[in-house]
């Protein structure tokens, strides 16, 4: 019996120690940035962060979720910095005292993606006309429906087109409740229209019959903002490290690094910090 008990104790100890070392794996300086799937999946962070880490020695841990969830992580104090794209929601976040000030960093644009044959004849340069035609033709449309920045923008475009989507939606309007990539996978498998950010679209590989249908409308601009989570509300927030990251993003060097990121020769994000 003693042997059994001893080996039990030994294995328990080993397991607990193992778990403890997992918790303390990284002693170096790091911050947690809650950001969006569009910045992570387009590869922007993979391009940006090594430059910043090399300069400052601060590691940036990116948790990529929808804008709604990223702001929620900021509200709960689970991130030091929030870097997202839904201006009205960001302004509410700042007004409610969860963080800020909000600094504009860059923009990219949304594109309306759809089947190459464009069954609803939605193609062109006018996003609102395009959406009206899709609704009129009852052509399949995939919505993120996940309170992400892209979803919020989509709802705003429907409204601007004079359509209250909750009232006019039918079986043609498919709400997936998923991230940009999974929603694109859904759209490509059912030949549906979908609103996507250009970065994710350009890096997306499973396009099947889809192509860009509407682009270049200035209303499709998609502004990204960055905010430090309020250290007065969450004392553990790494104020100095987080601020260093924000300062670098809007600095000349950070802005140039953003502009330099390209996929297939195409620039994805356009820096526009006000300095």
């Amino acid at each position: 019996m003693t042997f059994i008990r001893r080996s039990f104790i030994a294995s328990t100890l080993a397991a607990v120690l193992g778990a403890a070392s997992l918790g303390a794996a990284a002693q170096d300086q790091f911050i947690v940035v809650a950001s969006t799937t569009s910045t992570e999946q387009s590869g922007l962070f993979g391009h940006l962060l090594p430059v910043f880490e090399k300069k400052t020695g601060i590691k940036v841990r990116v948790v990529a979720v929808g804008t709604g969830q990223a702001l929620d992580q900021g509200r709960r104090g689970d991130a030091d910095v929030v870097f997202v794209h839904d201006k009205p929601a960001e302004e509410k976040f700042v007004a409610d005292g969860f963080g800020g000030p909000r600094l504009e960093v860059m923009y990219n644009d949304f594109v309306l993606v759809g089947p190459k044959v464009d069954p609803a004849k939605a193609g062109g340069k006018d996003i609102l006309e395009g959406l009206k035609k899709i609704e009129a033709a009852k052509a399949a449309f995939v919505s993120r429906a996940d309170k992400s920045g892209t979803h919020a923008a989509e709802v705003r475009y429907w409204r601007a087109a004079g359509l209250e989507i909750d009232k006019v939606k039918g079986s043609w309007y498919r709400e997936t409740g998923s991230g940009m990539g999974p929603a694109l996978n859904t759209a490509s498998s059912m030949d549906a229209y979908i609103l996507a950010d250009r970065g994710t679209w350009l890096s997306f590989k499973n396009r099947a019959n889809l192509d860009i249908v509407v682009q270049g409308d200035t209303r499709l601009f998609n502004q990204y903002g960055v905010m430090l989570v309020n250290p007065a509300r969450h004392p553990h927030v790494k104020k100095d490290l987080g601020q260093a990251f924000i300062d670098w993003l809007v600095s000349a060097e950070g802005q140039q690094t953003i502009a330099a990121y390209k996929i297939g020769g195409e620039q994805l994000f356009f820096p526009n910090a006000k300095r």
Partner: peptide, 17 residues
């Protein structure tokens, strides 16, 4: 484990632990 949760002070969220 969230900072706003009961065990938030342990700082375990988003770690392998």
């Amino acid at each position: 484990l969230s900072r706003a949760g009961p065990l938030g002070s342990m700082g375990l969220l988003f770690t392998p632990g």
